[in-house]
C-alpha cells in the first residue's frame, strides 16, 4: 500500500520536548519520521516527502484551522491526526469538518495515539475514515 519502503509519518509540533517525546514513542513503529516545527515547515515537508500520515499540533506558528485545510488540500489522501491543548467542542467539530481523521485533546495518552496511528496505517485509504478520540 505504501509508496515503497517505510511509511512516512510527519510530526508537526512547535514544542521541542513534545516533538522529542513523540519521536521516542513512535520510532519503533517501523515508520520513517519527518519532523516540522511550525505550519509553514509542515507544508514544505508535505510537498517534499509525501507523508503517509500526519500528526500535527493545531496552535503553533503558522498553524490553526487554515493551516489544516491547506494541509488537507496538499495531501488529499493522507490521514491527519490533530492534537490541541484542551480543545473545545467547537474546535473539534471544525477540525473534523476540515477532514482530519482523528482529533486528540492534549494531554493525550500515548497508548491511544499509537493505537490510532496503527489503525490508520492499517486502513490507509484517506480521510473517509474519521475517528475522534481522546
Amino acid at each position: 500500500m505504501f509508496k515503497g519502503g517505510q511509511p512516512v509519518i510527519l510530526l508537526v509540533e512547535d514544542d521541542q520536548a513534545m516533538r522529542s517525546l513523540l519521536c521516542d514513542e513512535l520510532w519503533d513503529m517501523g515508520l520513517r519520521i519527518v519532523e516540522a516545527s511550525d505550519g509553514d515547515e509542515a507544508l514544505q515537508r508535505v510537498s517534499e516527502t509525501r507523508p503517509d500520515l500526519i500528526v500535527t499540533d493545531l496552535r503553533m506558528p503558522a498553524g490553526g484551522l487554515d493551516y489544516v485545510s491547506r494541509l488537507r488540500t496538499l495531501a488529499p489522501g493522507c490521514p491527519i491526526i490533530l492534537m490541541t491543548a484542551f480543545g473545545d467542542a467547537k474546535t473539534k467539530d471544525e477540525a473534523l469538518q476540515c477532514g482530519v481523521a482523528a482529533y486528540f485533546d492534549k494531554p493525550v495518552r500515548m497508548m491511544d495515539l499509537k493505537a490510532t496511528i496503527r489503525q490508520l496505517m492499517g486502513n490507509h485509504g484517506g480521510s473517509d475514515h474519521r475517528q475522534a478520540g481522546k
Binding site: M18, D24, P107, M110
Partner: peptide
C-alpha cells in the same frame, strides 16, 4: 499553555 507541557510530563512518565 499548559496542555503541551502536561502532555510531555505524562508521555515521558508513560514512556
Amino acid at each position: 499553555e499548559i496542555g503541551t507541557p502536561m502532555n510531555v510530563i505524562l508521555g515521558r512518565a508513560e514512556y
